[in-house]
Amino acid sequence: MEAGIVGLPNVGKSTLFNALTSSVAAQSANYPFCTIEPNEGIVSVPDSRLSRITEFIVPQKIIPASLKLVDIAGIVKGASEGEGLGNKFLSHIRQVDAIMQVVRCFEDPDVTHVSGNVDPIADIDTIETELVLADMQTLENALPKAEKTARSGDKEAKLRVAAIQKCNAHLESEQPLRTLELPEAEAAAISSYGLMTAKPILYVANVDENDLAGEHELVQRVRGHAQKTGAKVACVCAKLEAEIAELDEEDRAEMLSDVGLEEPSLNIIARETYRTLGLQSYFTAGEKEVRAWPVPIGSTAPQAAGVIHSDFERGFIRAEIYNLDDLEQYKTEKEIRAAGKLRVEGKSYIMQDGDICHFLFNV
């Protein structure tokens, strides 16, 4: 699964992307459309539970979960009608699973704002409007074919028509589709359309280095908007984080202490993006490696096993599971088993965040 970083030009998208992916590429110039093809990068998801596990199970290597980020060029008003290479940019957004929208919440006369003044809510509305218009166009183009097929009695086509009509009505009220609840069957019938306003979103407030906690009125306005639409907000000073990312570990710790941060804000961004994608982690732990595996929330044990290898899912027999509290109490898997705390779970088991697992399978 992957998340796309979007925003108006010059809000700090590429600076944030480069910092998140520890890119050594030069920072983008202060010009709109400096990123035309989307850059892609893999980001590790920091998880303190990994180091806690390795206090008791010492591995040869530690592997955190990771996610894929796509840096998508700045969107401008009129993108849904092709302005500013809009069609190309929108096609990139259709392909991702979640959206990270960077909104500028800092004043800087040296960094030009595309609309002339800093207003994060206006920026959010600009992009949301373009995505709403693009989704409406997608649905309007799809409706005639769906109606024609539905007239032949095709059940899935009838579901598709019903879903399109509901979605169009919702979009006409200027509401994103992520705030519309559709029956599961109807949602599945239109899932191939890549509707952009249906994707979960995380607002990333790019703040000034003197407002790392995001107390400025501009950030509060973003939080208010997010609360109304069921979205989350994370704060980051992309410029500062880019500087921190370039330091070695010792200097990084010193700089974090100097600015009053316990960890880089990028860690928080990575974890919030992970949650926005609807992911949670389970762990495998042994002498070879301790590893966090990403799995969609609500996945069954066989589905989780399939993340490791498709054979694990195909030949799934059972899972042996314990949790970190058990490990910290009993110190070894042997003692966990002796205490009766090692659970045996079957095919219907729903994975819980933080499960430590052994999968038994036979192909």
Rank of each mutant, 00 (worst) to 15 (best):
I99L: 12
A157T: 12
P32T: 00
D71N: 10
D47P: 08
T179P: 09
I244F: 14
A122S: 13
E335P: 00
E172M: 14
L247N: 14
A338K: 13
A19K: 00
P109V: 01
A163E: 08
S115E: 15
L69F: 05
E186S: 08
R314D: 07
I99D: 00
V363N: 13
S80I: 01
R271V: 10
L16W: 01
I308Q: 08
Q27G: 12
I321D: 06
A98C: 10
G84Q: 11
E209G: 12
K331H: 09
V207E: 05
R318V: 15
E184K: 12
A169W: 04
E333C: 06
G41T: 05
L8K: 07
I53L: 07
E241K: 10
D71M: 12
R151Y: 03
V344N: 10
N10E: 11
G286M: 12
A198Q: 14
G116W: 10
S91P: 03
L133C: 02
L177A: 12
A185H: 05
G7N: 02
K155M: 11
D135M: 04
A238L: 05
F316E: 14
W293N: 01
G194L: 02
V219N: 00
L360M: 03
V222M: 12
P264S: 13
P9L: 04
L180A: 10
T273L: 08
L131H: 05
K88V: 04
L20H: 10
E250W: 06
Q303W: 00
T276K: 07
L279R: 08
Y330M: 03
S66T: 14
T54S: 10
S14T: 13
N18A: 12
Q303G: 08
A185W: 05
G260A: 05
E217P: 00
M136W: 09
E81V: 02
I356C: 06
R337D: 04
D211M: 03
E83F: 11
N30T: 13
V222R: 05
A234L: 01
Q220W: 00
L182T: 04
G153R: 11
A226H: 01
G153C: 11
F106L: 04
C357P: 01
S28I: 10
K334W: 06
P144E: 03
N87S: 05
V11H: 04
G86F: 04
I42S: 09
L261E: 09
K77I: 00
N18F: 05
T276G: 13
V161F: 00
V43I: 03
A231P: 02
P200H: 03
M255H: 09
T300F: 10
I93F: 01
L247C: 14
V118S: 07
R318C: 14
Y274W: 12
W293M: 06
A73S: 13
E246T: 15
G278I: 08
G78W: 09
L324R: 02
